[in-house]
Amino acid sequence: MPLKELFERDWQELESEGILFSSLEKLVAWGRSNSLWPATFGLACCAIEMMSATDGRNDLARFGSEVFRASPRQADVMIVAGRLSKKMAPIMRRVYDQMPDPKWVISMGACASSGGMFNNYAVVQNVDSVVPVDIFVPGCPPRPEALIFAVMQLQKKVRGEAFDQLGNQLPMVDAWTR
């Protein structure tokens, strides 16, 4: 088919011939959502379950997130796995700042999300007070399946298919301005 026809013919007609149309934004979001590379930020018990999520049985690779990058500069999503002590909080912020945009944060486990059972002088009570969190995963520690579900939810968010509590559609990350 000559290129000229793409602009002249009706798009429904073209779709019936197997040509898909999408906005570039959606295409980028689709690609991005299927290759969310996590930064290794294993802190405590949850880190073991995070490792388990990549093993042969759970296989996070099915969702394109198996490549745990040691360098934050190569990562898209930071999985905060475990209790965050106040001594570690500035370092986590620095790691987050080193990640390139667009970036997301999964707060894995009760300790990271709310301080969990450690309500004391040493533990940050919510990771959200240090970095903006996209997904909270409950559990102590969450099962690998829970983490995989969180990754799937994050993929929806990246693709702009997520809704807030009131049912409003959340905007997908604006790829061109960030």
Binding site: L43, A44, S85, K87, F118, N120, A122, V123
Partner: peptide, 11 residues
């Protein structure tokens, strides 16, 4: 160390 100091003994 101490980057994972959780205050177990106090808790």
């Amino acid at each position: 160390m101490g980057y994972l100091h959780t205050g177990f003994e106090k808790t």
